[in-house]
Design a protein around this nucleic acid. Structure first.
Length: 223
DNA sequence: AACGGAATCAACCGCACGCTT
DNA sequence: GAAGCGTGCGGTTGATTCCGT
């Protein structure tokens, strides 16, 4: 027996919400809440919409304190680090970013952040290859905010991901954080990195290890 | 100015889970 | 325990906007 649809799709409106619909939904929820039942809400509120559509519209757009617009570097750290730790559990990741929704985070990752990380991977790989005589000593990091976030997320969030994940994830964790933290000054960073001129907070690893890490990251990001 | 491809993001779809009966 | 139902979630789609030619 098939599952009953949540509403009659042929009779409800689909597509972008009008300002009038937004106003109706917002004022209804502010006055009465959702009554613990999204399915019946549209009828009560006078909306010709599916309950799931109302829920999504409220959670992603209308509810108070929603943040829109550009993500900050710190948010980048949080997303890349958590993605590496727990995978594509966007609702969990969004919990660590006040004002951001799972949909926002997911879209941002898929359209921008993933590419940003990959671009940096490519540059690193290329630069590393350009220094074939470079001996033993490169990379990486001052401890980035991302690592601090990684260590503070709940064990429950981590364990449910790791149960099905490969054992290399913990190794990748620091790598992704590092890569994501240097994007804005990539040329200088990588030159310093490859010449070994960094401060005390930079941990040194071998070039071959670096290249290996980069390839792991690329693999992890499913390139 | 016109066009086409790429990028963005709001919204939809369908599945899994948990609660209730 | 099974069935029904609502909710939450992640993946995907499609309309719109942006940008280069």
């Amino acid at each position: 027996m098939g599952r009953a649809p949540c509403c009659d799709k042929s009779k409800v409106k689909k597509g972008p919400w009008s300002p009038q619909e937004d106003a109706l939904l917002k004022s209804f929820i502010e006055r009465f809440g959702n009554g613990g039942n999204w399915i019946s809400l549209p009828k009560k509120a006078g909306l010709n919409r599916c309950g799931k559509s109302c829920r999504l519209r409220w959670l992603n757009y209308l509810r108070p304190n929603i943040k829109h617009g550009d993500f900050t570097e710190e948010e980048d750290y949080v997303i890349s680090s958590l993605y590496n730790t727990i995978g594509s559990r966007w609702s969990v990741i969004a919990k660590y970013l006040p004002g951001r929704t799972d949909n926002d985070v997911k879209n941002y990752w898929n359209t921008k952040l993933k590419k940003k990380l990959l671009r940096t991977c490519e540059i690193t790989n290329k630069d590393a290859m350009n220094y074939p005589n470079y001996k033993d000593s490169v990379v990486t990091t001052s401890i980035s905010p991302a690592l601090e976030v990684s260590s503070s997320i709940s064990q429950q969030d981590v364990s449910s991901h790791n149960s099905g994940a490969s054992s290399s994830n913990s190794d990748l964790n620091s790598s992704i954080s590092i890569v994501s933290s240097v994007d804005d000054h990539e040329d200088g960073f990588w030159m310093n990195l490859l010449s070994g001129s960094f401060d005390d907070d930079v941990v040194l690893v071998s070039r071959s290890q670096l290249v290996e890490k980069i390839n792991e990251i690329a693999l992890f990001l499913d390139v």
